[in-house]
Nucleic acid binder design. Structure first.
Lengths: 198, 198
DNA sequence: CAAAGTTATGGCACCGGTTGCCAAAAGGAA
DNA sequence: TTCCTTTTGGCAACCGGTGCCATAACTTTG
């Protein structure tokens, strides 16, 4: 019986490491010395690889804590598409955002640690906007599709921004007490916003 | 008649430049070579000063386009305080944000050029979140004062985030056509949000 | 088994932003 | 003139990031 095609090794020199290995080694060092206190040389040494090689796995040091965010975004788009079309627009978006933030409690590195790092390290806070921009785009595309307009029109842009605003509000509170229910906090923020504007 | 005390020269070596001079020289170079294409050495040369000295006026290259943002924030707080207390909270914040974005059309460097640089240069987009954070804090403090709660409670955080969201939405549209009325765009975004959530 | 082809590694030099350190410049005051 | 105060600016060093290229480590082919 021949081995399945996926088990045939690719030609060429085999990889010396992986995204996951770099991520885990990095989080170990970040926990010990902080993000700024951890140099790329230190990470490279911990992984047992040349510094030059790190840049073939992550485009920058700032991207390491984000892991494989592009794949996460695809899942988000699917969650939005799964909401029935007869749900009012604002509620559909809201449901999608809630679902996106229900994650398995066994992520590695743990979700709370990762988000604390990202949201409380100035250099990473700054870098995040680029990622947030992609996230907002997913929402803007969805809103544009539902309203039949363009994704760069006022409403899609605004909904993307406001949805992000609510999520960030909830995350800030959640980091103060990670035993809270994150989707619950988002839901509360949405309720508060609606009564604030009423 | 003695000269007013403010005109007496301070002791010590006089300054070789100023925030304004650095800002203007920088914008000249940014316009010509772009932000990333302008090195600090080039700016220092244009100003006629040592590179080391630039860091005594601005904490980083990214801060140059922002100018004196701390003073701007004080003005923003005053604008919010000037709104009568009997105006509903959401409308008070909204009026404050609108007033903040009515600026004289003769700013130097021009407001549109500055904002285009900040909002369309990735490195500056990223850096901006730190400034936005201070801006949101002004709003959160105001909301907390009006509601008699803490600034890190849900509503103040959410209002800060959402106000920023609307402003950024408007700026994105304004940059596409700077002949538009910026406060008008913010107002429209607010109206759209209210009908979206209704 | 040897040669050829493929792919990843990692060392090196280099750039640009940033910081600490310190000597020197440039003014006022005694 | 001397002292005090403040700013300047040069220098070395660190760190993140990039281009270049030789080489290691495999697979495939002959």
């Amino acid at each position: 019986m021949p081995p399945p095609p996926s088990s045939r090794r690719a030609p060429g020199r085999p990889s010396a490491t992986s995204h996951a290995a770099i991520e885990q080694a990095s989080f170990r060092l970040f926990a010990e010395h902080g993000f700024d206190g951890t140099s790329l040389d230190a990470i490279a040494a911990e992984v047992g690889v040349g510094k030059r090689t790190l840049f073939r796995y992550f485009p920058s040091k700032n991207d390491i804590p984000w892991g494989q965010f592009d794949r996460t975004l695809e899942a988000f788009a699917d969650l939005l598409d799964a909401v029935p079309d007869d749900v009012p627009l604002w509620e559909a978006v809201h449901r999608g955002v809630l679902a996106f933030n229900e994650f398995p409690p066994d992520a590695d590195p743990p979700h709370a640690e990762r988000m604390r790092l990202i949201l409380r390290t100035p250099a990473l806070q700054a870098h995040s906007v680029l990622r947030y921009g992609e996230w907002r785009e997913v929402i803007a595309d969805y809103v544009a599709r539902r309203t039949g307009g363009r994704a760069d029109a006022g409403l899609p842009l605004a909904v993307g921004h406001v949805s992000l605003a609510l999520a960030l509000t909830a995350y800030e509170q959640w980091l103060d007490d990670t035993s809270c229910d994150l989707p619950g906090l988002i839901d509360t923020a949405m309720r508060e916003l609606r009564s604030y504007l009423a």
